[in-house]
Design a protein around this nucleic acid. Sequence first.
DNA 1: CATGAATGAGTCTTCATTCAT
DNA 2: TATGAATGAAGACTCATTCAT
Lengths: 189, 189, 189, 189
Amino acid sequence: MSQDKKNQILTAAIDVFSEIGIENAKVSDVVKRAGVAQGTFYLYYSSKHALIPAMAEQLLHEQLDSLKEYVQDDDSFAKKIRQMVDTIFKVTDRYQHVLALCYSGLAMGSGLSEWESIYEPYYQWMDQLLEHAQRRGEVRKNIDVRITSKLVTGMMEEAAEQLYLFDENAKQAKAYKQETIQFIERALM
Amino acid sequence: MSQDKKNQILTAAIDVFSEIGIENAKVSDVVKRAGVAQGTFYLYYSSKHALIPAMAEQLLHEQLDSLKEYVQDDDSFAKKIRQMVDTIFKVTDRYQHVLALCYSGLAMGSGLSEWESIYEPYYQWMDQLLEHAQRRGEVRKNIDVRITSKLVTGMMEEAAEQLYLFDENAKQAKAYKQETIQFIERALM
Amino acid sequence: MSQDKKNQILTAAIDVFSEIGIENAKVSDVVKRAGVAQGTFYLYYSSKHALIPAMAEQLLHEQLDSLKEYVQDDDSFAKKIRQMVDTIFKVTDRYQHVLALCYSGLAMGSGLSEWESIYEPYYQWMDQLLEHAQRRGEVRKNIDVRITSKLVTGMMEEAAEQLYLFDENAKQAKAYKQETIQFIERALM
Amino acid sequence: MSQDKKNQILTAAIDVFSEIGIENAKVSDVVKRAGVAQGTFYLYYSSKHALIPAMAEQLLHEQLDSLKEYVQDDDSFAKKIRQMVDTIFKVTDRYQHVLALCYSGLAMGSGLSEWESIYEPYYQWMDQLLEHAQRRGEVRKNIDVRITSKLVTGMMEEAAEQLYLFDENAKQAKAYKQETIQFIERALM
DNA sequence: CATGAATGAGTCTTCATTCAT
DNA sequence: TATGAATGAAGACTCATTCAT
């Protein structure tokens, strides 16, 4: 029940921040959307700032869930890449502002170690994916898995941001995805 | 002479924002660093917000200059990639915060079209590089040059940010660069 | 049993207020110290403000008890003064903040008449002391007993506060007390 | 000119605090009265709290000026005492709330050493007065001048506060003063 | 052009108090 | 009685911006 309120606030914050950006969003906007009182906010988050890592965790968690759902274990690596790109482009479209925050680490001030631990499960999943593909002979052996995980994820996210921030979304989307997929495939397979 | 003040302010802004982040930096910090009066700021910039594109332009311009300097026309594409990665990692190390802003487009509010025009020369240089390499047979023909320009730049920048924000800089730097270079080479050559 | 809680709260309040001052002390600090719930406070005190007279009453009551204990009926007036000064200095040392409140009437807002009645037994005891001494020829007759009661008490308290707030306690204490005692003796005997 | 604003604020603060008490007074009340903007306040005082020592200094300064004016060098000690009591009762009547704050040291938080230096000139003047009277044979020699200064001042202030806070002012004033004067005279002469 | 004191709208945060359980 | 999560009014403080000099 009390977790309810905390989640209402988090969800509201993600929505509000996504819509109007983080600097423009007031705590009062968040609580209004969440349907709780101003003071209730501070029962669960020590400050407006404290929301940032919480939001990141929530969104990355959701994104990872999506990935786990759409990327099937027995798919080929090529198909997995395609699914991942699709998923990441979709999520990015929805949460541009907030994700930009997460990706760029702009929210610094909360210790970076906190960010590390938030991203960790994400990268771990990616590591396993790559290692699995390596074992199946779908991915070259001479790569640093850890770093490559980050490069690949970073590239997908960057591509999506580029697309949704600057280009006319609808038309270019297909080309962007296609190019991103091929780029990664060539680099790894 | 009056351009002097304008540049003092811009330089000071880049320094201050790099050091303490953009949300924490006050106009008063910037003018103090620049050694001008509070009011002088508004003689050259219509608002605090107006600094963002100006900073981006300045930094991207500098970065492009560096690239043009270090990346020699007659080098092999492989060497060019290495030089680019080196350069971008160096610049990113210095201007993390501000670049994060530029890269992620978080600074929105100024029309996006403005951003497009700021990035344009950057991407054009990249386009030429790729096309030149294609002509020399160093890069595959079946890529969309425009999009690939963005993917490659984005990837280099992302990798650098990952490195300097999260990992222990010194040790990992070499591995990160190496992996990034190879990733791109494989994807393109 | 229920009086237990009420007293726990009052005691906790005196402790907390003594330690961190009245403006800094939150109701939540008091209840935490008292080991009761936030709401319980309002079962026994109508508001935070209502604590002030209650605390005053409690402390003045304690102080009066101490005085009655240490100041023996058949002592000489001179000895009584000495005992009083000792006692008041001791209590003041312990409850500086709260007593300052009581003495200075800063806590106004609760009707002053309430304060009058709180102080009343205190002054009455003092009146009797003076009258008794007058009858024994130890104190001059040409004084207004009522007013002198207040002057004497006020002076002792003031002296103690001066000492414990501003001077290096340990060293000066003896001199302060001595001077205060003689001052009063000369004025009255 | 800029000192003007600072003084406007200080004066306004003393007035407002005197009228409605310190806890009830908002910074916004003070600036309204002073006729300056909210932000201007913070140009001169770092916080609402920072006003307290400033007010104390101002008031004690004024009070000392009054004392110096009304207490003539060549008056007898007895007359000086009378003038002092008159003056202190008058000032106390006007600035009860604020003085209570000063006297009781409740404003702590600012280092006590600051308070010491504020009171210092006050006590020094008193010291000289006593020493002068000693030399003229009007005050006994066997007193600690420093401590007695504080006792005497403290007593006068206490008496005035007692009067104006608790008793029906008009009627009792004369008796209070009279009694205070005699008390001190007997103790010292 | 340059200054910097003054402005005041805007927001975060606190905390006494309430009330459903 | 007792609880403590929830409330929301209230206020301190910040800082981008202006303007008289």
